[in-house]
Each structure stands twice: as structure tokens, then as C-alpha cells.
């Protein structure tokens, strides 16, 4: 936690700062990601889509946000 109340997190390996108190859905919207098209893992645990709007982002969280791409 910093003096301005923002949170330091990692998203797909990149450091980011987001405002304190936001939910995961709000974080996704801030980055520009449609929550309906991705899956979210937070500190190695899946966050079910139905709870994305309830779970708050916390300082130090490590997120993986994935989707389907072409593959064999």
C-alpha cells in the first residue's frame, strides 16, 4: 500500500498500480478487458466469474488473465 492508497499488483507478469478498494471486474475494465471473455487466476487460485465483481483487489496480488487463442 502506498501513501495515495493505490495498490501495487502484478497482471500477467507486469507491475501495475490500481486505486484501492476496487473489485476485479473494475480492474479488468480499467485495463480494457471484457470480463466475459477471460478467466482470472489470483495468487494461483481461480476466481469464479460469478464472483469477479465481489472480490476486491489487494496490495501485492498476482493475477493471470487468460483467454483462448489459436493453437493445435
Amino acid at each position: 500500500m502506498s501513501l495515495d492508497g493505490s495498490l501495487g499488483i502484478r497482471v500477467n507478469g507486469e507491475h501495475k498500480r490500481v486505486p484501492g478498494g476496487i473489485s476485479i471486474v473494475e480492474m479488468l475494465n480499467e485495463i480494457g478487458i471484457d470480463p466475459a471473455k477471460v478467466a482470472v487466476e489470483r495468487n494461483l487460485e481461480i476466481v469464479p466469474r460469478s464472483t469477479l465483481s465481489q472480490v476486491c483487489v489487494e496490495d501485492g496480488d498476482d493475477f493471470e488473465i487468460v483467454h483462448f487463442v489459436g493453437g493445435g
Binding site: N12, E14, G32, I33, V38, I65, F68, V69, G70, G71
Partner: peptide, 17 residues
Amino acid sequence: VAVRRVNISDPNQPMLT
């Protein structure tokens, strides 16, 4: 299909879906 990280610096790239 494969499962890969969303490109967070350009999340609006065209998607397979």
C-alpha cells in the same frame, strides 16, 4: 484452442472467438 495470457498493453486485438 490454446490458453494464453491476454495482451494487457493491447487488449483490443482481434480474438479467435
